[in-house]
Design a protein around this nucleic acid. Structure first.
Lengths: 242, 242
DNA sequence: CATAAACTCCGTACGCTGTATAGTGTTCCC
DNA sequence: GGGAACACTATACAGCGTACGGAGTTTATG
């Protein structure tokens, strides 16, 4: 889409120096736009984030945003990088083992998606390599200190952990109320059509899972189960000595 | 959105018996519509799948589709269930261990997303509990026979495996050509801004990973790395004896 | 056999999206 | 003071899903 160099310059706020600029002074900063968009997406979700809605929140016409941002995709990149920059990066204490640290990384990302559910849905094809994402990457890599993993495996391991957390965040976007209504309306027909003889395991396990978590999918349970598997899986790799 | 009961009836093809129907005979079956939409999405991606494009492929006006399908969301549900139904379900042989079988489940899902990349992107909030998805669920649960896991854990384990494969499929949607152009245009500015002293691990590991896989993300490598971690993680759970 | 109901299918239209384009007014450099 | 660069606006366009009203076809019912 847009010009990568322009996007990168924007991410790192490489602006033209102020005294050299002509024309009326901008009423906002790029961060004002990013903050307005983030507040909107936090409150009402990505589908409510339109150029018009952001513009209205700032008291500007829709096209006025394009003085600050090349387009919506770039705005989303800026939002994500800003959210990454705002994440806490407590220094890893020596007493912690890598497993404890990586678990903390996962928890921090889960908290990110809890605060900004939209963040799980912005494209990862072209990661916004801005100051936030870079600092996050560096900090999270440090959590693996002591594992003895080679650099390539380090990246793979972190990608694996982050992919898991993001997957859970993406899967947990349905509303519990709607879930209940869905089951109420679908139950009778489902009971009629789900033949226990044809699908013995599906019926048995599906019923058990549905009853245990009160819904078809429980993000909390999926996270608690999955993060242990993720860490155990990494532990096997580390124990094997790279 | 739509009526869940209507959607379910459609998924299971609970139609009104033919002789009792008035009006002109439908020119197509629901499967004709689903197949046309699937062919389109396979060839040109989800963003090319519009009600108008599906209709044109069938030689019908856009609104004509609504005789067969309540809306686009339901069409996507039908497409996904049909794709699930078409997956091979070879009987698990006794000689296989559960690890081998679960790896086969993961491979089969990876093949599904290779054939139908759009399938990784249809909403999982309301899984289309049709004949395909149900048969797939039942068959994949059977892969865990011998693990001794309780029903709730069985569902969690399968969800964990499928979530991983889907995450890799979703992440691997960027074009390699665009990747190269992106790096070429971004490289100079990135080199200037990525301070080795501020982000020592990020620069080192990022460079190693980028060089090793020739791109910021290599789905094949991510899958091969991740599936071993997933299976190791499950193995730790199984070894622990539930 | 006529009529009404049910059905397929079409054309038009609406509100919504991101953003291209043209134009207006402000500010600074020369 | 003139011209260039800039912020900002209003209008417009193509594309989306789909609501609506109507036309034509088939069948059940009086």
């Amino acid at each position: 889409m847009g010009d990568p160099a322009r996007t990168l310059a924007l991410l790192w706020r490489h602006e033209v120096p102020l005294p050299a600029r002509r024309g009326p002074r901008p009423r906002f900063s790029v961060d004002d736009v990013v903050d307005a968009a983030t507040a909107l997406a936090d409150a009402d979700g990505l589908e409510a984030l339109t150029m018009r809605s952001v513009a209205e929140r700032l008291g500007v016409s829709a096209m006025g945003l394009y003085s600050y941002v090349p387009g919506k995709d770039e705005l989303l990149d800026l939002m994500l990088d800003a959210a990454h920059l705002a994440m806490p990066r407590p220094p890893w204490r020596g007493g912690q083992g890598w497993r404890e640290r990586v678990a903390a990384v996962a928890d921090a990302n889960r908290a990110l998606f809890a605060a900004h559910p939209w963040a799980a849905w912005v494209s990862s094809a072209r990661p916004p390599l801005g100051p936030g994402t870079t600092a996050k990457y560096d900090h999270e890599l440090a959590a693996f200190d002591g594992t003895g993993l080679a650099d390539v495996e380090l990246d793979a391991a972190l990608t694996f952990v982050l992919g898991f957390v993001r997957g859970v965040a993406r899967a947990g976007e349905s509303e519990p109320e709607q879930d209940a209504a869905w089951w109420a309306e679908s139950g009778p027909l489902l009971a009629q059509v789900l033949d226990v003889d044809r699908y013995p395991r599906a019926v048995r396990v599906g019923a058990a899972a549905g009853e245990a978590q009160g819904a078809a999918y429980d993000p909390g349970a999926a996270y608690r189960f999955g993060i242990e598997r993720v860490l155990d899986g990494l532990e096997a790799l580390v124990a094997r000595g790279s």
